[in-house]
Protein backbone atom coordinates (compact mmCIF):
# COMPACT_ATOMS: atom_id res chain seq x y z
CA UNK A 1 0.00 0.00 0.00
CA UNK A 2 1.26 3.43 -0.94
CA UNK A 3 0.80 6.15 1.59
CA UNK A 4 1.69 9.79 1.41
CA UNK A 5 2.68 11.30 4.73
CA UNK A 6 1.40 14.79 5.48
CA UNK A 7 3.62 15.57 8.44
CA UNK A 8 2.07 19.02 9.20
CA UNK A 9 3.99 22.27 9.54
CA UNK A 10 4.60 22.16 13.27
CA UNK A 11 5.65 18.51 13.37
CA UNK A 12 8.08 19.19 10.50
CA UNK A 13 9.61 22.12 12.35
CA UNK A 14 9.31 21.22 16.02
CA UNK A 15 8.77 17.46 16.28
CA UNK A 16 10.68 15.69 13.51
CA UNK A 17 11.12 12.68 15.80
CA UNK A 18 7.38 12.04 15.52
CA UNK A 19 7.69 11.99 11.74
CA UNK A 20 10.66 9.62 11.91
CA UNK A 21 8.65 7.34 14.21
CA UNK A 22 5.70 7.28 11.79
CA UNK A 23 8.09 6.29 9.00
CA UNK A 24 9.67 3.57 11.12
CA UNK A 25 6.30 2.24 12.22
CA UNK A 26 4.56 2.24 8.85
CA UNK A 27 7.53 0.79 6.98
CA UNK A 28 7.74 -1.98 9.58
CA UNK A 29 4.11 -2.73 8.77
CA UNK A 30 4.95 -2.96 5.06
CA UNK A 31 3.60 0.38 3.93
CA UNK A 32 5.33 2.12 1.06
CA UNK A 33 5.73 5.76 2.08
CA UNK A 34 5.92 8.91 0.03
CA UNK A 35 6.59 12.43 1.18
CA UNK A 36 5.45 15.33 -0.94
CA UNK A 37 8.33 17.83 -0.76
CA UNK A 38 6.10 20.84 -1.44
CA UNK A 39 3.79 20.34 1.55
CA UNK A 40 3.51 23.08 4.16
CA UNK A 41 0.41 23.63 6.34
CA UNK A 42 -3.26 22.63 6.40
CA UNK A 43 -4.40 26.16 7.32
CA UNK A 44 -5.76 25.35 10.76
CA UNK A 45 -4.04 28.21 12.57
CA UNK A 46 -5.41 30.76 10.15
CA UNK A 47 -8.89 29.29 10.07
CA UNK A 48 -9.16 29.08 13.85
CA UNK A 49 -7.95 32.64 14.29
CA UNK A 50 -10.48 34.05 11.82
CA UNK A 51 -8.18 34.47 8.81
CA UNK A 52 -10.43 32.60 6.47
CA UNK A 53 -9.02 33.82 3.16
CA UNK A 54 -5.55 32.72 4.18
CA UNK A 55 -6.83 29.40 5.43
CA UNK A 56 -8.54 28.92 2.10
CA UNK A 57 -5.35 29.41 0.15
CA UNK A 58 -3.66 26.73 2.24
CA UNK A 59 -6.63 24.40 1.96
CA UNK A 60 -6.56 24.81 -1.80
CA UNK A 61 -2.85 24.07 -1.77
CA UNK A 62 -3.41 20.88 0.21
CA UNK A 63 -6.04 19.60 -2.19
CA UNK A 64 -3.95 20.39 -5.28
CA UNK A 65 -0.92 18.61 -3.81
CA UNK A 66 -2.72 15.48 -2.70
CA UNK A 67 -5.57 15.03 -5.16
CA UNK A 68 -3.84 12.19 -7.01
CA UNK A 69 -2.60 10.45 -3.90
CA UNK A 70 -3.84 6.98 -2.98
CA UNK A 71 -3.90 7.56 0.79
CA UNK A 72 -2.83 10.44 3.02
CA UNK A 73 -1.82 9.79 6.63
CA UNK A 74 -1.53 12.64 9.13
CA UNK A 75 -0.17 12.15 12.66
CA UNK A 76 -2.11 15.08 14.10
CA UNK A 77 -5.80 14.87 15.08
CA UNK A 78 -6.45 18.60 14.92
CA UNK A 79 -5.11 18.93 11.38
CA UNK A 80 -7.31 16.06 10.21
CA UNK A 81 -10.25 17.72 11.94
CA UNK A 82 -9.43 20.94 10.11
CA UNK A 83 -9.56 19.14 6.78
CA UNK A 84 -12.75 17.24 7.54
CA UNK A 85 -14.75 19.88 9.37
CA UNK A 86 -13.58 23.18 7.95
CA UNK A 87 -12.49 22.56 4.35
CA UNK A 88 -16.05 21.89 3.14
CA UNK A 89 -17.21 25.26 4.45
CA UNK A 90 -14.19 27.07 3.02
CA UNK A 91 -14.65 25.52 -0.40
CA UNK A 92 -18.39 26.15 -0.38
CA UNK A 93 -17.81 29.79 0.45
CA UNK A 94 -14.67 30.64 -1.47
CA UNK A 95 -13.94 27.83 -3.87
CA UNK A 96 -15.19 26.69 -7.23
CA UNK A 97 -17.07 23.59 -8.26
CA UNK A 98 -13.99 21.80 -9.58
CA UNK A 99 -12.12 22.28 -6.31
CA UNK A 100 -15.10 21.05 -4.34
CA UNK A 101 -15.23 17.89 -6.42
CA UNK A 102 -11.52 17.29 -6.08
CA UNK A 103 -11.78 17.68 -2.34
CA UNK A 104 -14.83 15.44 -2.02
CA UNK A 105 -12.94 12.73 -3.89
CA UNK A 106 -9.84 13.13 -1.75
CA UNK A 107 -11.47 13.32 1.67
CA UNK A 108 -12.24 9.59 2.16
CA UNK A 109 -8.57 8.87 1.55
CA UNK A 110 -7.32 11.16 4.34
CA UNK A 111 -6.61 9.36 7.62
CA UNK A 112 -5.44 10.24 11.07
CA UNK A 113 -2.70 7.82 12.14
CA UNK A 114 -4.73 5.65 14.54
CA UNK A 115 -7.63 5.55 12.07
CA UNK A 116 -5.24 4.40 9.38
CA UNK A 117 -3.78 1.64 11.53
CA UNK A 118 -7.03 0.30 12.97
CA UNK A 119 -9.50 0.94 10.13
CA UNK A 120 -7.40 0.78 6.99
CA UNK A 121 -4.51 -1.54 7.82
CA UNK A 122 -6.70 -3.41 10.30
CA UNK A 123 -3.85 -3.89 12.69
CA UNK A 124 -3.89 -3.42 16.44
CA UNK A 125 -0.70 -5.16 17.50
CA UNK A 126 2.02 -3.21 15.75
CA UNK A 127 4.80 -5.14 17.52
CA UNK A 128 5.70 -2.30 19.87
CA UNK A 129 7.62 -2.55 23.11
CA UNK A 130 7.69 0.36 25.53
CA UNK A 131 8.50 -0.62 29.11
CA UNK A 132 7.20 2.52 30.81
CA UNK A 133 4.32 3.91 32.84
CA UNK A 134 2.19 5.97 30.45
CA UNK A 135 -1.00 8.00 30.63
CA UNK A 136 -3.01 8.90 27.52
CA UNK A 137 -4.45 12.36 26.93
CA UNK A 138 -7.49 12.21 24.64
CA UNK A 139 -7.15 15.39 22.62
CA UNK A 140 -10.36 17.35 22.00
CA UNK A 141 -10.21 17.00 18.24
CA UNK A 142 -9.50 13.29 18.47
CA UNK A 143 -12.46 12.70 20.77
CA UNK A 144 -15.10 15.14 19.59
CA UNK A 145 -14.21 15.92 15.99
CA UNK A 146 -12.73 12.65 14.70
CA UNK A 147 -14.59 10.39 17.14
CA UNK A 148 -11.52 8.19 17.49
CA UNK A 149 -13.31 6.26 20.22
CA UNK A 150 -11.36 3.23 21.44
CA UNK A 151 -8.89 3.12 18.56
CA UNK A 152 -5.99 4.53 20.62
CA UNK A 153 -6.60 1.94 23.33
CA UNK A 154 -6.82 -0.89 20.82
CA UNK A 155 -3.30 0.07 19.80
CA UNK A 156 -1.96 0.82 23.28
CA UNK A 157 -3.32 -2.38 24.80
CA UNK A 158 -1.04 -4.38 22.51
CA UNK A 159 2.15 -2.52 23.39
CA UNK A 160 4.36 -4.91 25.32
CA UNK A 161 5.88 -3.80 28.59
CA UNK A 162 3.78 -0.67 28.83
CA UNK A 163 1.81 0.11 31.96
CA UNK A 164 -1.18 2.35 31.28
CA UNK A 165 -2.47 4.68 33.95
CA UNK A 166 -5.97 6.08 33.38
CA UNK A 167 -6.26 9.87 33.39
CA UNK A 168 -9.02 11.56 35.37
CA UNK A 169 -11.25 13.97 33.39
CA UNK A 170 -9.91 12.30 30.31
CA UNK A 171 -11.52 14.43 27.62
CA UNK A 172 -11.13 17.81 29.29
CA UNK A 173 -9.22 20.31 27.17
CA UNK A 174 -5.60 21.12 28.09
CA UNK A 175 -6.14 24.77 27.22
CA UNK A 176 -3.95 24.97 24.13
CA UNK A 177 -6.43 25.91 21.41
CA UNK A 178 -3.82 27.26 18.98
CA UNK A 179 -3.65 31.06 19.13
CA UNK A 180 -6.05 30.86 22.10
CA UNK A 181 -2.95 30.01 24.16
CA UNK A 182 -1.53 33.48 23.52
CA UNK A 183 -4.68 35.55 22.88
CA UNK A 184 -6.15 34.30 26.15
CA UNK A 185 -2.87 33.23 27.73
CA UNK A 186 -4.10 33.52 31.32
CA UNK A 187 -7.24 31.41 30.90
CA UNK A 188 -5.25 28.95 28.84
CA UNK A 189 -2.71 28.71 31.66
CA UNK A 190 -5.45 28.19 34.23
CA UNK A 191 -6.84 25.32 32.15
CA UNK A 192 -3.35 23.94 31.73
CA UNK A 193 -2.76 24.02 35.49
CA UNK A 194 -5.90 21.98 36.12
CA UNK A 195 -5.05 19.47 33.40
CA UNK A 196 -1.49 19.10 34.59
CA UNK A 197 -2.69 18.28 38.10
CA UNK A 198 -4.64 15.33 36.74
CA UNK A 199 -1.72 14.20 34.61
CA UNK A 200 0.88 14.47 37.36
CA UNK A 201 -1.47 12.63 39.72
CA UNK A 202 -1.20 9.53 37.52
CA UNK A 203 2.43 9.16 38.50
CA UNK A 204 3.23 8.23 34.91
CA UNK A 205 6.62 8.82 33.31
CA UNK A 206 5.10 9.81 30.00
CA UNK A 207 1.96 11.54 28.82
CA UNK A 208 1.07 10.50 25.29
CA UNK A 209 -1.47 11.69 22.74
CA UNK A 210 -2.16 11.64 19.02
CA UNK A 211 -1.59 15.35 18.69
CA UNK A 212 1.71 17.11 19.35
CA UNK A 213 0.01 20.48 19.75
CA UNK A 214 -1.51 19.47 23.10
CA UNK A 215 1.75 17.77 23.98
CA UNK A 216 3.76 20.91 23.20
CA UNK A 217 1.51 22.77 25.62
CA UNK A 218 1.63 20.11 28.34
CA UNK A 219 5.32 19.38 27.80
CA UNK A 220 6.18 23.07 28.00
CA UNK A 221 4.52 23.30 31.40
CA UNK A 222 6.08 20.05 32.62
CA UNK A 223 9.49 21.39 31.70
CA UNK A 224 8.83 24.76 33.32
CA UNK A 225 7.62 23.14 36.52
CA UNK A 226 10.25 20.37 36.77
CA UNK A 227 7.30 17.99 36.88
CA UNK A 228 9.50 14.97 36.26
CA UNK A 229 7.38 13.79 33.35
CA UNK A 230 7.74 13.95 29.60
CA UNK A 231 5.41 13.97 26.68
CA UNK A 232 5.68 11.58 23.75
CA UNK A 233 3.53 11.20 20.64
CA UNK A 234 1.79 7.83 20.47
CA UNK A 235 3.49 7.17 17.11
CA UNK A 236 6.84 7.13 18.91
CA UNK A 237 5.58 4.58 21.42
CA UNK A 238 4.12 2.43 18.64
CA UNK A 239 7.38 2.63 16.68
CA UNK A 240 9.45 1.61 19.67
CA UNK A 241 10.75 -1.99 19.89
CA UNK A 242 13.15 -3.95 22.11
CA UNK A 243 15.99 -3.48 19.66
CA UNK A 244 15.12 0.02 18.55
CA UNK A 245 13.62 2.04 21.40
CA UNK A 246 12.02 5.44 20.95
CA UNK A 247 14.41 8.32 20.35
CA UNK A 248 15.53 10.06 23.49
CA UNK A 249 14.03 7.37 25.72
CA UNK A 250 16.48 5.29 27.72
Amino acid sequence: MRVSLFITCYNDTLFPETGRAVVKLLERLGVELEFHPRQTCCGQMHANTGFRAEAFSQAKRFVRLYQDTETVVIPSSSCVAMIRDQYPGLFAELGNEELRKQFAALLPRVFELSEFLVDRLKVEDVGAYFPHRVTYHASCHGVRALHLGDRPWKLMNKVRGMEQVPLANLDRCCGFGGTFSVKNAEVSSAMLAVKLQDIVATGAEFCTALDNSCLMHLGGAMHRQYAGMKTIHLAEILASTETSPAEGVA
Partner: peptide, 21 residues
Protein backbone atom coordinates in the same frame (compact mmCIF):
# COMPACT_ATOMS: atom_id res chain seq x y z
CA UNK B 1 2.44 35.19 26.27
CA UNK B 2 3.46 31.57 25.73
CA UNK B 3 6.54 31.61 27.91
CA UNK B 4 4.83 33.31 30.83
CA UNK B 5 3.74 29.87 31.97
CA UNK B 6 5.32 27.33 29.62
CA UNK B 7 8.73 26.59 28.19
CA UNK B 8 9.16 25.84 24.52
CA UNK B 9 11.55 23.27 23.20
CA UNK B 10 14.18 24.87 20.97
CA UNK B 11 13.94 24.08 17.28
CA UNK B 12 15.72 20.82 16.42
CA UNK B 13 18.71 21.03 14.07
CA UNK B 14 17.05 18.97 11.40
CA UNK B 15 13.49 19.32 10.20
CA UNK B 16 11.54 16.23 9.25
CA UNK B 17 11.63 17.06 5.55
CA UNK B 18 15.39 17.62 5.86
CA UNK B 19 15.75 14.17 7.39
CA UNK B 20 13.58 12.63 4.68
CA UNK B 21 15.63 14.23 1.92
Amino acid sequence: KWTQTRDLRGLPKQTFHGWWA
